[in-house]
Nucleic acid binder design. Structure first.
Lengths: 231, 231
DNA sequence: CGCGGCTTTGATGTTCATCAAGTAAAGTGG
DNA sequence: CCACTTTACTTGATGAACATCAAAGCCGCG
């Protein structure tokens, strides 16, 4: 149930100042006409592995997960993107097809801009090109760094990472509603669902966090950071 | 012992057709004047974590490793770059300092092109910009894919990966001289040195490979590929 | 020649996934 | 709206996968 709905003009978009700040009024108009905004309900697929890539996808609001389906039909989550992240990583330049699937994990609005238009502006507007690449490079670099951070840590460190990730990076609050299931947490940080639960319970008993289903509150961020750092 | 030695003109460089094929003769001349080529002996550092990034680094010949030093002074290898790979990943756009260290694991020649020149050409030559990004995106994407491939497999699958990586991707031969130590293999695929050796011995006993120190010959590539695929 | 680093094998212990079993929550169809 | 089914969550017990420790041989290098 993808509701296509053109919203405000790009020039009023709160994200204009982010990725598209270096486009002229004229260029912005072109994008405005050609762009599509789609609303996705939590759980809906935005794209699937193997889909043709024809658009640059920009997350306006919400939260999405980027994942890969393994041979054994298990899912492996690569990253979680938040507003102002471009989604789909660098595939848009190096592949013609999506190499990951993307699903909304919260109600989300994604802005699709035809890839040819983006490429045209890269060619014709150098300042935009540089700035644009700085931004998408940062996202890719951060994915690499995160994968390493997670895989060099053991379970307690990984759970600490996830808690800090949502608390600090995504919600900016010690209290938050975990947008993904325990199973998805497991798929994101390479551990079994049971152990995700076990370590969370352990942290609760140690008064590091408080849990009520999906509602989590970080009680002792300092100690959590220490656990993360020590691995 | 970095031997700086200007070699042939860029326009005769065998790699011109690769990353710089879309530059005009004029533009290539600018690069030619400003570039520096350096020779590194096996084991020498090309750059260290924290170094200022001022150049785009392009591997002409040899082999280098990209790694990070952990808190406990252990090293973790992110990737191995081969000729025609640009080294340093996307940091050049998203950071001002190197986030990884780079060391030659075989005698190597690295070509340094001032970053400002690259950026200038990105701004002024759109075709070059697009092509350039396609290439560096592919390298970053491949690093992400590899990290996932490795971390979703267990030890036998990881060793199979390494053997196939060097045999097919790096040397294009079933016989090759492993350029890194067992310890470094361990650092690259997240396992202990002892288990690297153990699995290699196991593979030798199973007639999958033949080993004499660093000399390795893949005897049964089909079975090795199967082990890799099954994890 | 002797020292340190790399390599190898075996023994031991820890970390973690898997299995099992039960409860709670969330869809689904009549 | 309620029985029904499925999916998510939780805890304990077990075993497998893997790191770590220990010891010894090997090789290159100053």
């Amino acid at each position: 149930m993808e509701l296509a709905h053109k919203v405000s003009n790009c020039k009023d978009c709160i994200y204009r100042s982010w990725a598209f700040k270096n486009l002229s009024a004229e260029e912005l108009k072109v994008i405005n006409v050609k762009k599509t905004e789609k609303f996705y309900r939590k759980g809906e697929n935005i794209c699937l592995e193997g889909d043709e890539i024809s658009s640059f996808m920009y997350l306006q609001t919400g939260l999405v997960k980027l994942f890969k389906t393994e041979l054994n039909s298990k899912e492996h989550i690569i990253s979680i993107a938040k507003p102002k992240d471009f989604i789909g990583l660098l595939s848009i330049f190096s592949n013609t097809k999506q190499i990951y699937s993307i699903t909304a994990i919260e109600d989300s609005i994604v802005c699709f801009v035809n890839l040819e238009i983006i490429k045209k502006f890269i060619k014709t507007n150098g300042i935009f090109a540089i700035d644009f690449f700085e931004k998408i490079s940062a996202v890719s670099d951060s994915v690499i760094k995160t994968r390493i951070d997670i895989n060099t840590r053991q379970l307690r460190g990984r759970i600490a990472y996830i808690l800090l990730f949502f608390s600090k990076h995504i919600y900016g609050s010690s209290k938050f509603n975990l947008p993904i299931s325990r199973k998805e947490v497991a798929e994101l940080i390479d551990m079994s669902t049971e152990n995700v639960i076990r370590v969370l319970s352990e942290f609760r008993k140690d008064n590091l966090i408080q849990i009520e289903g999906k509602n989590i509150e970080v009680l002792d961020i300092k100690r959590l950071e220490k656990i993360y750092e020590l691995g």
